[in-house]
Write a protein that binds this DNA or RNA. Structure first.
Length: 516
RNA sequence: GGCCUAAUGGAGAAGCGGCUUAACUCAGUGCCCUCUCAAGGCACCAUUCACGGGUUCGAAUCCCGUUUAGGUCACCA
């Protein structure tokens, strides 16, 4: 089983099709291969084939055969279309002999003129029937013009009738009917390379492709492909046309996620931001198969490769891309990692995209792991992080020099407390709150310290008698938290202090106290 | 405009003629837990399936029309 069709650009949209091709091949014990479709010499981007391969590999999508960058593997090569020119030409030669194809000398201007005329008469546009002028040229004339050096292309001579319907079948859409193709489509361009339609028929026949998985935009071309296979005397493959991923456009309508305008359409966007690739694959899987979500919850977000993909569980509508859900999967996945895995992932990311973060991690990898390990590796781990892209900002307060820098501008206490109160709390905590005890005792002691200074030991007591206290224990914790972390939320204070250690905590307390 | 396809909550969706006064997940909201946040627990969030007709004892589910949305109409893939 050989899914085909990869654009030589590496975007999320093709990640989606690649992922499904790969999955289907795996599930059915087929072969997943990549063929480089580089017949559009005008739009070709150098090196995009290698880039695609590299990115797919990050998502654990590795082709079994076909184009592999610096090599090609398999019995049906070459797998780069520009290297298959002689194959296409051989087939075309036979078509020419059989009278099923002919050279066309019409210039772009003439074609435009035909188009205008058709538009005026409200006829279907295109090169067909009486408008297909070059169809009616005699062989002598063709020979003469070719010998003369007139530029030409080769068109396929359609025997179809627009008013007839052909039954087509699609693995995700089921069976439906489309008008027969009556256009004499171009099969060989003036640069000597075939168009997609023709290359698709040839390649997928000669490469023994059994399933073609591609984007929905190809549905409309199905009559052409059906016709081509039939006239060539070949058995057509099965088709699966995948829905396109959408987003809400500027006008409020759904529109295709565009690789030109939407950063989230590019895989590199997620890579640069440090999302785990598994999260994106999981998210894409929920779009691909509606029952995947339930399955992955049952399987605790593990072993997703065991999920059985099925075309008929696929929605025909293009889903709106949902960043929130990507974040959800991401947190879930990162929450499950051990501190060692987190270290590896963070380093890998930072090495490529974030030198500041890399430097921070490499100061002391154990320290970094300690930070990342707060309330991790337990039944319900913290799910603080969805990506590595903002990690530097999130953990910088753990590093003394960075703390110093930030403390100059980010020390914002609750204004309802006077400097003296804050000072009193911090001094007492500094002097009396030992870190040499378990979390519960530590917490009880913090309450006790608060109480001696007039703070309620819990929120309830404070709510019941607000006038009896100057604040509640949460205010005390907030003062400590802001002093040590410079923010109003942070992971569990006890663990933060354990990591910073007594000496550094005291230093931060003193530094703040001296400022008042 | 022609052709093809689709239409269930803010998003992804289940549903395939009675078991549905519409599952599940994300997001949101409220409460609980609680030193903050995250996590976790518990609730709430579509009386209704784009609209209008029909078929049927019975329709989100079948049929027809309308509307809306997407795809497509290249010497691009």
């Amino acid at each position: 089983m050989n899914p085909n069709t990869f654009k030589n650009y590496s975007y999320a949209i093709t990640l989606f099709t690649s992922m499904i091709c790969h999955k289907v091949a795996r599930d059915t014990k087929g072969v997943f291969y990549i063929r480089l479709e580089d017949t559009d010499t005008k739009r070709e981007i150098q090196g995009s084939g290698e880039e695609l391969l590299k990115q797919l590999q990050l998502f654990n999508i590795v082709p079994d055969e076909g184009y592999l960058g610096d090599s090609q593997k398999g019995n049906y090569g070459p797998y780069i279309q520009s290297q298959r020119a002689s194959i296409y030409k051989t087939v075309i030669k036979q078509l020419l002999i059989d009278g099923k194809a002919y050279p066309c000398f019409c210039s772009p201007e003439e074609l435009a003129q035909i188009h205008d005329e058709q538009e005026k008469k409200k006829l279907n546009p295109g090169y067909y029937g009486e408008f297909a002028k070059c169809r009616f040229l005699s062989n002598e004339e063709r020979k003469e013009r070719i010998l003369r050096g007139d530029p030409y292309i080769i068109r396929f001579k359609s025997n179809g009738d627009h008013t007839n319907k052909v039954a087509v079948s699609d693995l995700v859409r089921g069976d439906f009917e489309i008008a027969e193709n009556d256009l004499d489509i171009v099969i060989l361009k003036s640069d000597g390379l075939p168009t997609y339609h023709f290359a698709h028929a040839c390649d997928d026949h000669f490469m023994r492709t059994t399933i073609v998985i591609r984007g929905e935009e190809w549905v409309a071309s199905l009559p052409i492909h059906v016709q081509l296979f039939k006239e060539l005397g070949w058995k057509a493959p099965k088709y699966a046309h995948l829905p396109v991923i959408m987003k809400i456009g500027e006008n409020g309508n759904k529109r295709k996620l565009s690789k030109r305008h939407d950063p989230e359409a590019a895989v590199s966007y997620f890579l640069q931001d440090g999302y785990p690739t598994e999260a994106l694959v999981m998210y894409l899987m929920t779009i691909a198969n509606s029952n995947f979500e339930e399955w992955i919850f049952e399987h605790k977000f593990e072993h997703m490769e065991e999920f059985k993909f099925s075309f008929d569980k696929m929605s025909l509508e293009g889903a709106l891309f949902d960043m929130g859900k990507v974040n959800f999967f991401s947190k879930e996945i990162l929450g499950k990692k051990t501190k060692y895995e987190i270290l590896d992932m963070a380093k890998k990311y930072a090495r490529e995209f974030n030198p500041n973060l890399l430097a921070l991690i490499e100061r002391d990898e154990n320290y970094f792991m300690e930070i990342m390990n707060i309330e991790r590796e337990k039944e319900n781990p913290r799910k603080d992080y969805e990506k590595f892209g903002n990690l530097y900002e999130l953990i910088s307060f753990f590093y003394n020099d960075l703390y110093e820098e930030l403390a100059r501008t980010q020390l914002n206490y609750n204004e309802k407390f006077s400097n003296d109160t804050i000072k009193a709390v911090l001094s007492k905590v500094r002097d009396e709150l030992s870190l040499e005890q378990d979390e519960q005792s530590w917490f009880n002691n913090m309450k006790a310290i608060g109480e001696t200074l007039g703070f309620a030991p819990n929120g309830k007591a404070f709510k019941q008698n607000p006038n009896q206290y100057i604040g509640s224990i949460s205010d005390v914790a907030e003062m400590i938290r802001i002093t040590l972390t410079l923010r109003k939320n942070s992971p569990n204070l006890y663990y933060v202090m354990q990591i910073l250690k007594k000496e550094e905590c005291d230093r931060r307390f003193n530094s703040v106290i001296s400022k008042f």
